[in-house]
Simulated assay, not measured.
Amino acid sequence: MSTAGILALALVLDAILGEPDWIWKRLPHPAVMMGRLIGWAEAGLNTGRARRILGVLLMLALVLGMWALGVLIAAPGWLPEMLVVAILLAHRSLIDHVRAVGEALRLSTGDGRRAVARIVSRDTATMDPAAVTRSAIESAAENFSDGVIAPAFWYLLGGLPGLLIYKAVNTADSMIGYRSERFAAFGWAAARLDDLLNWIPARLTALLIAATHHGLADWRDIRADAGLHRSPNAGWPEAAMARALNVAIAGPRAYDGVQRDFPYVNAAGRKAPGPDDIDAACTALWRGWAIFLALVILIGLF
């Protein structure tokens, strides 16, 4: 079976089943295992004066290790490969987590804060309903790129080794790719490689969201808003989602008690979104997913 055919089946299987609790309560998820490996390596290597070099060597080892693992898993045939691909895609679980924020926010602001705290790293204790909603929408857009489109893209290009390499790099970036005193040197390679691997998928994700709403009429504005983001990639899907829903997202927020004055994305949009906008963001993700699935099927046919 072709790579595109396997991916199409995996996308559908993930959309139907998501991440069944009955499995992952008994077995460690592959992404969790990657995280444990990276955490173990960081604890032993992130010390001394050669931290940047050691971080580069860690990423090289991860890339080579994931390539070898991908070749090994794919060797028996298409079925185990398809199951691994479905496990490492995260569309259904993303929808479930984001939609849960809207449902919780309808109950109370406190419930909304607790729900959104499960999917974002910023401070949530003092968020108002609009801030909870903006955070959920941002997470939906960014994770659609990181958790669905990017891994699928690299699977199409590099097969299972390509997908595993992307997931390992993305996991490493989420753990050590920070500009903090502890990680600035050691996590430099993880952050830069993650930026590189997400460059095309982030823009593709923005294109999918834009194309399923207002077409490309807003593309110039999306590109301008994306440039306001501190990340070279995350701003693209966020800007596209903000335009699709006509809401202002991003903006000021706090991390570890420190207020950060980030600019709004789509500053002219509505600044008081609510649970219905979270539902609309989930619908936008399904639209983008459907178009992407159709493109994968077309690739498989030709």
Rank of each mutant, 00 (worst) to 15 (best):
M175C: 05
I222V: 13
E103K: 07
W199Q: 04
L164Y: 06
S180L: 08
K167A: 00
A224V: 01
G110H: 03
H229Q: 04
T124Y: 15
H214A: 12
A234N: 12
P232K: 07
D194P: 10
V116P: 03
S231H: 11
I149S: 01
Y155I: 01
I176G: 11
G102S: 01
D173I: 09
A184M: 09
V120T: 13
S231P: 09
D123L: 09
I137K: 05
A239G: 02
S121C: 00
N198T: 10
R99D: 04
H214C: 10
A104R: 00
V101G: 00
V116C: 05
L107G: 00
V169S: 09
A189Y: 14
D218R: 11
N233F: 11
F153R: 14
I165F: 00
W199M: 12
P129N: 03
D111E: 15
A217M: 12
A130G: 10
I200Y: 14
L228Q: 09
G235V: 06
D221W: 04
F183I: 00
G159N: 08
D128Y: 11
A189M: 14
A115V: 01
P232F: 07
G215K: 09
T133H: 10
I209R: 10
R203E: 02
N170D: 03
T212E: 14
A190V: 11
A172H: 13
D111V: 06
M241A: 12
A202Q: 07
K167N: 05
P129D: 01
V116M: 11
A140C: 09
I119C: 07
S139R: 09
A190N: 09
R122K: 13
E138G: 05
A239L: 12
T205C: 10
R230A: 14
A239E: 06
P129K: 13
S145Q: 05
A217C: 06
F186S: 08
S139Q: 06
G112Q: 05
A234H: 12
D221M: 09
R179D: 10
F186N: 07
T171E: 08
D195E: 07
A152Q: 06
W236Y: 15
L207R: 11
R99A: 14
P151F: 06
G235E: 02
G187M: 02
I222A: 05
G187D: 00
A185M: 04
A240F: 15
N198G: 02
D123V: 02
A150W: 13
R106E: 00
A125E: 15
W154D: 02
A206C: 11
H214D: 15
D173A: 07
R220K: 14
R122S: 02
M127V: 04
E142V: 08
E181R: 14
I149P: 06
W154P: 02
S231T: 07
A141G: 04
R220S: 13
D123T: 02
L156D: 00
R113M: 03
R179M: 10
A189R: 13
I209P: 07
L160A: 04
R179C: 01
A152I: 09
A140S: 09
M241V: 08
